[in-house]
Design a protein around this nucleic acid. Structure first.
Length: 562
RNA sequence: GCGCCCGUAGCUCAACUGGACAGAGCAUCGGCCUUCUAAGCCGGCGGUUGAAGGUUCGAGUCCUUCCGGGCGCGCCA
């Protein structure tokens, strides 16, 4: 049940009956406890429109709204706010509801992670991978038909440089670390050696032209790269799999057609030998238009063309109704251009094209993040460090865990802390990554949430109670029980909020508030040694289930003990 | 030069997209363990939301200008 939507419906019906149809009730959680559980702010704006007194209208809305069985009290407060307190039995009855499949099979494509050929995954791949994965999980839980697309950078000049360099030196390797080193060398030569650059471009032409020997070599390097990426995904607990890979190369055969089609639609102009689209909306105050180059003067293609083909594939062949791109903020101009040109060409088919940008990960010193050694930004090193730090901390707090269990806990806490530190930030700008803060086990961190879960599980273990054996609807008596049940009832609306905004931090905030509500309940309401034990155990059970499910949707594991 | 993003407590971040006295955590100060994990809970301190105008019943949020920081801008992706 979407609590906010339910209250909104009831109040807007009341608004209509009060003579102000088509007005927004503006419902949300109350900003302060003394204002109840939920509040509606729409009466003031509506009263302005209708030319009546805000408080009078608010009173009429309350009188005309069907809130029976939902709110235990409703009153006009301040200049015209409507303050609602929700009914205890209503909240209790909502416990244990499953997630409502509001997605109804709507197909959504999520483009995320997109590592590059012949390069190890770096720390900067983390944000796209983690945010994209959490988004995919949440949308899926809501009943959307999610199509994950790992748009791997497996095509173009990078490969040409690498192969041209290996041709020159006679070197080769099956190890990704070696390939990456060769790649770095090749990139250096590409900048300084024009003859080499020409050979590199020729390799790309061979590749894109379908030369079998070049293609075979390319496939070998792809396999080496992608098996590395899959290992990282598995280690991270990310749901991407080989079948989600559809890299730039997948669109190679479409590129000529894209250009022909754009040309037929009159969107292209030849400029300095390259085929460009000049769209008015990219004209600055100085009168210059930033061009979109879809075909280079040497006949090669760029990522604009590939991405256009991908849009056409996703809206056409895949019939997606929404396209999400989880890509860093530096690509903003590219996506504005891409979406604009896709619309001009009709490739968007009227669906929503959305670039969800994010900033860089910075170290505590405000500079781009580095691992403990200060040397590199290899993702695997980073994950090793996270797990090791978690192990040290957990070991210090709880030395009684056995080796195997300690491994599981260290992984869940270390990887969980890293993911949560990222997911809990809203900023589209850069964010500061701090090992101490995210692993301190205090405040809004994954370990705090995992601890809250483990604490509940411990309660069941100590009481010798099987959580699954409990049934029925609890009676709510104490304020802490009410607050906990209220927070539990907000799960659905939180998930829908994440789905619409693609901001997983709303789910993080929700889970932190839930864990906090539980901790207050736990301090004030004895569970096991209580004559309302089963009622409270039911609240505990639903809290544990929601924490676990919510963390799972973020891609974070829970443990029974820690 | 043109363009995009960001400035909120000492630090790291919220504020449900225009609503009530801007909230948490860390740090700091002070309470609470013979009872379910103190990795916790309760309280104190801490703010002219970068600045100035504007829009309106109401602005951290919207519009303008300025200051400060980051990023991008035709054949890399």
């Amino acid at each position: 049940m979407n609590l906010k939507a339910l209250i909104t419906d009831r109040l807007e019906a009341g608004l209509a009956r009060a003579g102000v149809p088509d007005a927004d009730a503006i419902v949300g959680p109350a900003t302060r406890p003394e204002f109840g559980d939920y509040q509606a702010n729409g009466a003031m704006a509506a009263a302005k429109r209708a030319g009546v007194k805000p408080r009078d209208l608010a009173a009429r809305i309350i009188a005309d709204s069907d809130l029976a069985g939902i709110a235990s009290s409703s009153e006009v407060t301040g200049p015209g706010f409507i303050s609602l307190r929700l009914d205890d039995d209503f909240l209790a009855g909502a416990l244990g509801e499953t997630i409502e499949p509001v997605g109804r099979g709507t197909r959504v494509v999520i483009d995320y992670s997109h590592p590059n050929l012949a390069k190890e995954m770096q720390v900067h791949h983390l944000r796209s991978t983690i945010i994209g994965d959490a988004t995919a999980r949440v949308l899926e839980a809501l009943g959307y038909d999610v199509v994950r697309q790992n748009h791997v950078g497996d095509w173009g000049t990078g490969f040409g440089r690498l192969v041209a360099h290996l041709n020159d030196t006679g070197e080769d390797s099956e190890a990704l670390g070696d390939l990456e080193r060769f790649y770095t060398q090749a990139s250096g030569r590409f900048e300084t050696d024009p003859a080499f650059a020409d050979r590199a471009r020729q390799v790309v032409v061979d590749l894109q032209g379908g030369d079998s020997e070049t293609l075979e070599r390319w496939r070998r390097y792809i396999d080496i790269s992608m098996s590395h990426c899959q290992a990282v995904y598995d280690r991270l607990g990310v749901s991407l799999r080989p079948e989600h890979v559809r890299g730039e190369s997948a669109y190679n055969d479409d590129l000529d057609d894209i250009v022909a089609d754009l040309s037929a639609k009159g969107l292209l102009t030849e400029d300095e030998g390259a085929l460009c689209a000049f769209l008015d909306e990219f004209k600055g105050k100085d009168g210059n238009v930033v061009p979109i180059i879809v075909k280079k003067s040497d006949g090669g293609y760029l990522y604009h063309s590939t991405d256009l083909a991908a849009v056409r594939y996703r809206t056409g062949t895949l019939r997606a109704e929404r396209l999400l791109y989880i890509v860093d903020a530096r690509q903003s101009l590219h996506f504005r251009q891409l979406f604009a040109l896709a619309r001009e060409a009709g490739y968007d088919r009227g669906v929503s094209l959305e670039h969800h940008a994010f900033g860089m990960m910075l170290g505590a010193d405000g500079r781009p993040f580095k691992t403990r050694e200060g040397s590199g930004t290899r993702l695997l090193d980073f994950l090793d460090e996270a797990t090791e730090r978690a192990r040290e901390l957990v070991q210090a707090k709880n030395p009684s865990l056995g080796a195997a269990e300690m491994d599981r806990v260290a992984r869940a806490v270390g990887i969980g802390a890293v993911k949560y530190a990222d997911l809990s930030k809203n900023r589209t700008g850069d964010y500061v990554f701090d090992w101490h803060a995210m692993m301190s086990f205090e405040g809004n961190t994954a370990p705090y949430l995992q601890y809250a879960y483990a604490r509940i599980r411990s309660l069941f273990e100590r009481g010798g109670v099987d959580a699954g054996s409990l049934s029925g609807t609890p009676t709510i008596r104490e304020p802490e029980e009410h607050a906990l049940a209220l927070q539990l009832a907000r799960f659905q609306e939180t998930l829908e909020q994440v789905a619409s905004t693609v901001m997983p931090h709303h789910l993080c905030t929700y889970l932190y508030d839930l864990a906090s509500a539980f901790m207050r309940f736990y301090e004030n309401c004895p569970v096991l040694d209580s004559d309302v034990r089963d009622d409270r155990l039911l609240l505990c059970r639903h809290t544990a289930e929601t924490l676990s499910q919510g963390l799972d949707l973020l891609g974070i594991e829970t443990v029974e003990r820690m």
